[in-house]
């Protein structure tokens, strides 16, 4: 299988995730190294108070692609994702919440983005209906998303940065939220533009809706 010639960043917010982080990084690394020549995993530690920081430090020794950003105080995972997006260097950036979002979805989401979608949002097919008990673990929201950053892969020196809004209202309706995107040119001039956004279901069926 030929590997795609683009750089993919995975941004993951962490908060007291020491027990799961190693498995998550190993799974993401396995997917990235299979599909891409160039990739990075940006772990944003939202000021965890458990062993997350130490665990990630160990992972930094083992995985060259891992970078860590530790927030100076707990800011919430939206802010953590924003910090990760701000530091990510990929042509495509996939935001993932460990334990909730499936690493296997990365290549499909990136492929859709490569074909022109600026933002791809994953929606869990097993999300709870209103009134259902939330799944075990964290809040019942899946936030997998790919954000295209056209810096190198396309023709112009433009960057796309997504200013993520927390999912409005009920958190399990993340797929209804559209993140506004500002596209910047080299000198810092800002242009607003419309965003072509796709929602896709996870795990994937065919194509994309939206």
């Amino acid at each position: 299988m030929t590997k795609a010639d683009c750089l993919v960043s995975v941004v993951a917010p962490l908060h007291n995730d020491a027990p799961i982080i190693e498995e998550f990084v190993a799974a993401v690394h396995a997917v990235l190294s299979t599909h891409y020549t160039y990739y990075e995993i940006v772990l944003v530690d939202d000021h965890s108070r458990d062993a997350t920081t130490e665990t990630v430090r160990e992972l930094l020794q083992r995985f060259r692609c891992v970078r860590m950003i530790r927030l100076s105080k707990a800011m919430g995972f939206e802010a953590a994702i924003a910090a990760g997006l701000d530091s990510a260097i990929g042509d495509f950036v996939v935001t993932m919440v460990p334990n909730d979002d499936p690493p296997d979805a990365i290549p499909t989401m990136v492929d859709i983005s490569r074909r022109g979608a600026d933002i791809v949002t994953g929606v869990p097919t097993n999300r709870p209906e209103p009134g259902d008990a939330l799944p075990m673990g964290r809040v019942g929201v899946s936030f997998a998303g790919a954000v295209a950053s056209s810096g190198i892969a396309s023709d112009g020196p433009e960057h796309v940065l997504s200013r993520l809004q927390p999912p409005g209202g009920q958190r399990d309706h993340a797929h209804q939220t559209q993140a506004p995107v500002s596209r910047r040119s080299g000198g810092g001039d800002r242009l607003s533009r419309n965003v072509f956004s796709l929602s896709i279901d996870l795990p994937f069926r065919t194509g994309a809706g939206g």
Binding site: L7, T37, Y38, E40, I89, G90, D91, G151, I152, P157, H159, S185, G186
Partner: peptide
């Protein structure tokens, strides 16, 4: 590929 992508964030040219 990593160097140039990061550096271009500061110096887009």
């Amino acid at each position: 590929p990593y160097m140039v992508r990061d550096a271009a964030r500061y110096l887009p040219v």
